[in-house]
Each structure stands twice: as structure tokens, then as C-alpha cells.
Design a protein around this nucleic acid. Structure first.
Lengths: 206, 206
DNA sequence: CGCTAGATTGACTGGTCAGTCAGCCAGCGA
DNA sequence: TCGCTGGCTGACTGACCAGTCAATCTAGCG
């Protein structure tokens, strides 16, 4: 028997699932691939999980809660909208740097899989959009962002831009390395905020 | 027998496939659902197509060629980068307005399905990114866009923002109606370009 | 007309997997 | 020492569905 404590196996299965889902995609991943990767018997999966789906759900839910929390904390703990958005973008990018396989699974199999798991988790995903939209709305109310763009609209552009960027890194469409990640944090925000802030000429008081 | 000419059936099958893929998603769509929707016998699909996959490939390829063409024409026929990008965004948004089900299928099942069809069509998808990046790069060379953001990076943000917007409409996360579509064309470009253009204070000649 | 080619039909097959289940084994308490 | 409990095993089953194919129909054509 392995070295781990009794239910380390559960974690081992989940970790193996991340690797297999990232490598093959959820649909192409057989449960037997996961158990093989984890070095456990086929049936053990069903001792700890109800279904293959549940594994993905758990991976997503766990991570997404952290993301939501990070965005909301950024909103309460920081002052300028730019800093808030940069913290949000930074958290997502750091998540990717820290565990690219997990983020790949979350984005590719849930967030962007709107017809399968994305639909199931739409409420949670929408919470993130809303949290970003709130940051924008507050900035608009304070006159720091232009008000002729709806906050939800701006939130979609912002989130979509980041997600597309990660997707580009994941599939190596665009070069990704430590410096790229670092630079990206600032540039995403600068680019989007640059368009959201009132132009000097049009500024109308605060 | 129906009213149509001999191989109208092929088109009927393809149209039915759009509706079924849009409604259920590609994976959940059975070939029998499509034939039922089209009102033809099961086997007829395999008279006109090699496989279920090929139907989706054909739907995508057909439409994507138009998109690519539109972006490239915008690039050659228009002058300012803003107009070019607005034409590109406008074409995508108009495609959605004209046939939302087809665009849903293309985005959800191909463009954002990076682990299945997205991978197969990555080269074509990348051509679109490249075409957008070229517009940005030219604008940078002319001093109309800031040069400290790589053109490919900017292209990803731009494309990602639009796609996320469509996704929001598709899944009714964000309100979508004729006026919204019309306004969106301008706002997407304004928001992103606003961040890409040099600020007045920093402008350095052309 | 009879003939051929292409369109059309739908029952059937073969392969694939998620999920089940009957039972094994290790450790522990009595 | 003997059960007992719960982690653990992996062969097996049942459902599902893409793709096949032999047969039927229809339209033109000589």
C-alpha cells in the first residue's frame, strides 16, 4: 500500500482528474484513464464520487469560490477602480501561473463550455460577472469611468478579454512566460480602463 | 415526396443540424435528432456526409471564410484602424443578428471548444486573430496606436471581448436586442481602442 | 417499356464506457 | 483469535448511438 493516510486517495484521484481532463478534455477522458493516472482501482472513484461529472463540478466549485472571493476582496480593500480590476485580473493570471492544468480545465470545460457544464454553473459564473460589473458601476457613480457604457457590458468585455488571453496561452496561440504573465496583468487593465475612463476633454467633474 | 429539387435535402439536413446543435449542443445531439428535425430517413445523412463531425466542420468552415474575408476587406478598404476594427466587430455582430443559431453553434462548439473542434480548426481561427493583429500592427507603425502592447496581445483582447459579448447574448446573461447590437458595435471598438490609442499627453508624433 | 443510377429508407451491428456489485483485505476492538 | 467495518478491487452489465447496408423507390433515357 502507498504511503498516504486513508483518504489521501480521494485527493490523488482529483489531482489525476485534473491532469487527465487537461490532457484529453472531459469528454474524451475515460474514468479508467483517471484511475490509471492515479494508480487506484476503477471502482474507487465511485467510493468517493457519485459520478465523473461530480469530479469536474468539485474542481470547478472549489477554485471558483476563491476567484469570487478575490474579486470581492479586491473591491472592498482597494480604492481606485483600476487597482481593483488589476487585482482581479492579477488573481486570474496568477491562478493560471500556479496551476495551469486546473485553470485550463476550468476555462475550457466549464466557463467556455456553455452547453454542458457552463450551463450548470451559470449562476456561479454570473456572480463573477456581477462582481466585476459592481466595480465598474461604482467607478461610474464616482465619475471615474464614463457612464455611457453599461457596467455589465463593460464587465463582459473585461472578463472576455482575460479569458481569451488565457486561452491563447493554453493553446500556445500567443507566447506565454513569466514576464508575459506579469506584463499582461497591467496591460489588460490599462487597455480596457483606458477605454472606460473619460477622455480629458470630455471629463465632467466627479 | 417533398417539393424541393433533388439535393435540397442536403441543405435541409444542414439547416436541421444548425437548429439541433444550437438547441442541444453537438455532443448531446443524436444524428437521429437531426434527421427527425429535417424530416428525412436516418441513413440519408450518410449519403451526403461522411460523419456527424463533418456536418459541423462544414457549417463552421463556410461561415468562417466569410468572416475572414470581411476582416481582410475591412483592412484594405478602410483607412482608420478604428473604422477597420468597427467593421470587423460589426460583421461578427451582424452575423449573430442574422443567424443567431448558427453563430451560437460556431462559437460554442468550435471557437470556444478548444479541446475538440476548436483544436481541429485552430489554424483557421488563428488566421482571424492574425488578421486583426495586422490591423493593430499597422496602426502602431503609423503611430495611431500605442506600441507598448503587442499587436497579437491586443488582437486577443479585442476578439475575446466580442466573443464574450456574443456569449452573453446567447445565454441571456446580458440583454440583447436590436438597439443593443447596434450600440455594441461602436462601444466595443471605442472601449478597446480608447485604451490602445496614445493618451494626448503621451502622443509622440506619427 | 425495361434499365440504370442515384436518392432514400430504417433495421441492425459493433464498439464504447459510465456506473454496479460481490467480494477481498487490513486494521482494530473485544 | 474472531469478527467487523470500511477502504479498496476489477470484471461485468446495460444503455447508448454512430455508422453500415441491403433493399426499395424514382426519374430519366433509349
Amino acid at each position: 500500500m502507498a504511503i498516504g493516510s486513508p483518504t489521501e486517495k480521494r485527493r490523488a484521484i482529483l489531482d489525476a482528474a485534473i491532469r487527465v481532463f487537461a490532457r484529453q478534455g472531459f469528454h474524451a477522458a475515460r474514468v479508467s484513464d483517471i484511475t490509471e493516472e492515479a494508480g487506484v482501482a476503477y471502482g474507487l472513484v465511485y467510493h468517493y464520487f457519485d459520478s465523473k461529472d461530480q469530479m469536474l463540478n468539485e474542481l470547478f466549485t472549489e477554485r471558483w469560490a476563491l476567484l469570487l472571493d478575490a474579486i470581492r476582496r479586491a473591491d472592498t480593500e482597494l480604492d481606485s477602480p483600476r487597482d481593483k480590476l488589476e487585482a482581479a485580473a492579477g488573481f486570474i493570471i496568477e491562478s493560471y501561473r500556479h496551476d495551469p492544468e486546473l485553470m485550463k480545465v476550468i476555462i475550457v470545460e466549464v466557463t467556455r463550455a456553455a452547453n454542458s457544464f457552463g450551463r450548470t454553473h451559470l449562476p456561479e459564473i454570473r456572480e463573477a460577472y456581477d462582481a466585476i460589473a459592481k466595480i465598474v458601476a461604482d467607478a461610474q457613480a464616482a465619475g471615474e469611468f464614463r457612464s455611457d457604457v453599461s457596467a455589465e457590458f463593460a464587465a463582459m468585455l473585461f472578463y472576455g478579454a482575460i479569458e481569451q488571453l488565457l486561452t491563447g496561452w493554453i493553446f500556445e496561440v500567443v507566447p506565454g512566460g513569466d514576464e508575459d504573465y506579469e506584463r499582461a496583468k497591467g496591460l489588460v487593465v490599462e487597455t480596457i480602463c483606458g477605454g472606460l475612463e473619460p477622455r480629458a476633454a470630455e471629463r465632467v467633474a466627479g
